[in-house]
Design a protein around this nucleic acid. Sequence first.
DNA 1: AAATTGTTTAAAACTACGTTTAAAACAAAA
DNA 2: TTTTGTTTTAAACGTAGTTTTAAACAATTT
Lengths: 203, 203
Amino acid sequence: MARSRNTEQKIFDAATELFLEKGVDRTSVREIAAKAGINLALMNYYFRSKENLFSAIFSSLVKKNSEELIHILDSDLKLEEKIRQYVNVYIDMLSENPLLVSFVMAILHRSRERITEMKAVSSLYATEKFTQQVLEEGKKGNIRRTDPSQLFVDMLSLIAFPFAIKMLIRDKNNFTDKEFREFIQERKKRIPEMLIDSLRLKS
Amino acid sequence: MARSRNTEQKIFDAATELFLEKGVDRTSVREIAAKAGINLALMNYYFRSKENLFSAIFSSLVKKNSEELIHILDSDLKLEEKIRQYVNVYIDMLSENPLLVSFVMAILHRSRERITEMKAVSSLYATEKFTQQVLEEGKKGNIRRTDPSQLFVDMLSLIAFPFAIKMLIRDKNNFTDKEFREFIQERKKRIPEMLIDSLRLKS
DNA sequence: AAATTGTTTAAAACTACGTTTAAAACAAAA
DNA sequence: TTTTGTTTTAAACGTAGTTTTAAACAATTT
């Protein structure tokens, strides 16, 4: 008899929501079981431990949310357009799941020393193709010579960080949720402009 | 008889180190007591609870590290020079305590809903003087008209985020600790250039 | 010197959590 | 009907955060 995908999924979904909302360490397995409407022992039947369940969820979240981004970085678009698309898609994705950034960053801190082991994390960073493209356009003189790492870190920072300090921004500007979303939407124009400006050749 | 400041400080220091290193929720009070070389009950004698101790540490850290920054924002420097100084001082500060960003962001997530209550957090954001200055320079036509909030978020993001993803950057570029520090130092030039560029009037 | 006051220790208790186990009940498939 | 996979109930284990109690200790005050 096939094991009920339904139950495993219910645990997975309940845990995902709680982990994002409260953080892994502030979520108890009893809480997950309650939210999933299942028995505590079933947690151990499907996932051997909380840490196991967390790993599965983390990998799944990162994979689900990075595939499209990697695809853009690896595409044949010219650099300017690539940056525009990347920023747009990334911001849309984070807008739909605003807790993702905090979650991932908490994990980066939690697992600081064993990051190399976490394969999923790898896909959060620039691809080889992107790096090469920036170097080549620099050599050709199409853009200013730029360290691809610096450029990519700039881009990531400008996209992701505001979500991590969402509450600070909301609070200080007295933003409603809607106003915060508009603030973020504004950045879809602003960020590519800044980045592309920084790449332009100066007279 | 005055209570021994020494013991209270030992608890405070041990807890600070552990909280930054492992995160609040992964640090036990028994661990803190052990590291401080004191009895478990003394934790309760000086700070009523772990959460209390954490609050004290958080406030102290934020206050200690934000005073100089606020002073710069509130100074009478012209905007360009103000940005340069802010970026420089901030990066130097975070370089000396690279775990600060992760720590503060973990707290921002942990205390998402009760952020308004945390007075310390307030000082992490732009001041009224800075906001006014950006608006006025825009009106005068000295710089492009700019949303001060967006500008400040850009600045914060470019400064702080790289520290939060330090391990990712190190790993992906095969940086040693020294090389990462150089990577960050490079940003002291790069970030003000970008920001000031984005403020320049276009022909 | 004795009493007072503030500090520290040792020991234990309470509740909650992550984990694991045991035994039984249940349901679909062979 | 037996087998196999799923689910429940119940309990146990060690550890954690917290709190309490009682005693010991040290400096100050009387």
